[in-house]
Amino acid sequence: MTVHILFAAKVESWSDYEAPLRETLDAAGLDYVLDCDMQAEQVEYIIYAPNSGLTDFGLFPRLKAVLCLWAGVEDVVGNASLRVPLARMVDEDGLTQGMVEWVTGHTLRHHLGMDAHIVNPDQRWDCTPPAIAQDRPVTVLGLGALGLACAQSLAHLGFPVSGWSRSAKDLSGITCFSGADGLDDALSGAQIVVLLLPNTPATENTLNAARLALLAPGAFIINPGRGTLIDDNDLLDALDSGQVAHATLDVFRVEPLPQDHPYWPHPNVTVTPHIASFTRPSTAARVIAANIARSEQSEPMLHLVDRSVGY
């Protein structure tokens, strides 16, 4: 039977996604109709971006599943009209690899003290050698697909890596913590902290004044996760006191970051414009096509969101 698939994202995305989606759907052996405009009563699957403007999933009586193009689903998971399975984007070749490269790059940047040599107006000839990886404890908050891949990459480079997750995990090469008490233990003495938690009520302000105080003095914060994970005022206080030496931030509560936000002029903050990782059509299309094929073959879909925890 013919499968009807609606592409619901910003209009300009259709030209980027159409060819890769058709190629991968063909390769999966599916008989399908794919379009960005379709009669609601025909739609069985929705390839979805939360910024598409689509908010009422009750309009689609034959809907089987919604496949999100984004890793983050906080903007849709609470939608009361969504009563079918919701799959988030987990793309090892695109999203995950991009995140690993960004996190590893900025971790090495801070670890090696590269900023002092890149911006050196006084022409200082400082021969102080950097620490080596084994002497620089790193903590990764969040051990989902993205966090786990980053933690493993850093451990492979020789960093002693601790990881924290909501539920207990046992991972080779990573010291794992879980639960409320485990979070404080994971942060204690960390010199670099990478935040890759989802945006949920339980994770808001995970890094606050009390937890920032647990870090090694002069620690570095790297946040490519969600802007809500950090209490901004507490981080600014920690930066001004020297408890945190530098924060590299890719995500913010309001985006684009307002021009009058104190992060912009702060000498110890690096602002990047939400580019740590993003969905790449060529690789994301393979994930989407494979999941639709699984559903049509009555196999369990992958990367389904647990509504009770929000991701």
Rank of each mutant, 00 (worst) to 15 (best):
T55K: 15
R124M: 10
S308A: 15
P258E: 11
V119K: 05
T55M: 09
G179N: 12
A87M: 03
R62P: 00
M99R: 08
A290C: 02
Y311R: 03
L25A: 02
A210N: 13
C150V: 13
S172E: 05
R253M: 12
A133D: 04
A293M: 02
N233F: 04
A28F: 02
G189L: 10
H274G: 03
D170R: 12
R109F: 11
F220S: 04
L112K: 07
D126R: 07
A65V: 02
S153R: 11
V43D: 00
E12V: 15
R109H: 15
L6N: 05
P129Q: 11
A27R: 14
I288V: 13
L69C: 03
L34N: 07
I174L: 04
P217F: 06
E296I: 12
L67A: 06
Y32M: 11
I292P: 00
S298E: 14
W164L: 14
A293V: 10
T279A: 04
N120K: 12
M99C: 05
P130G: 02
G179M: 12
S241G: 09
P50L: 05
L34M: 08
V33E: 10
H266Q: 08
Q191A: 15
R83K: 15
Y32D: 01
Y263M: 11
P262Q: 04
A209W: 06
R280S: 06
T270K: 00
D260G: 13
S277D: 10
D37F: 09
V309N: 07
T206Y: 09
T24E: 14
A190I: 10
L171M: 11
I288G: 04
D250C: 15
A293G: 01
P281W: 00
C150E: 03
I230T: 14
H156N: 04
D170Q: 15
G182C: 09
K169S: 10
T248V: 11
P137S: 01
L214F: 07
Q259R: 15
L157I: 02
I275D: 00
G147D: 02
R307K: 15
P130V: 09
A210I: 10
E23M: 10
A238H: 07
Y263P: 08
N51W: 11
W264I: 09
A19W: 09
L108P: 03
V11P: 08
P224I: 11
P262T: 02
Q123I: 12
E23Y: 07
T175S: 13
S153Y: 06
V138S: 02
D126H: 11
D75T: 12
N223F: 14
L235H: 10
A8M: 04
E12H: 09
G147Y: 08
D75A: 13
S241Y: 09
A245P: 12
T279M: 04
Q259C: 04
V84Q: 00
G182E: 03
L141A: 14
R166V: 11
I230M: 07
M114P: 03
L302I: 05
D250P: 15
T206D: 11
A284P: 14
S13C: 04
F7D: 02
H261K: 07
T2Y: 02
T104W: 05
C150Y: 05
P267Y: 01
T96A: 06
S172P: 09
C127Q: 14
L157H: 00
K64W: 00
A190W: 10
W125V: 15
L196R: 06
V287A: 03
L21I: 13
L207H: 07
W164Q: 14
P300K: 00
P256R: 08
A247Y: 05
V100R: 06
T228N: 13
G227R: 03
L95A: 03
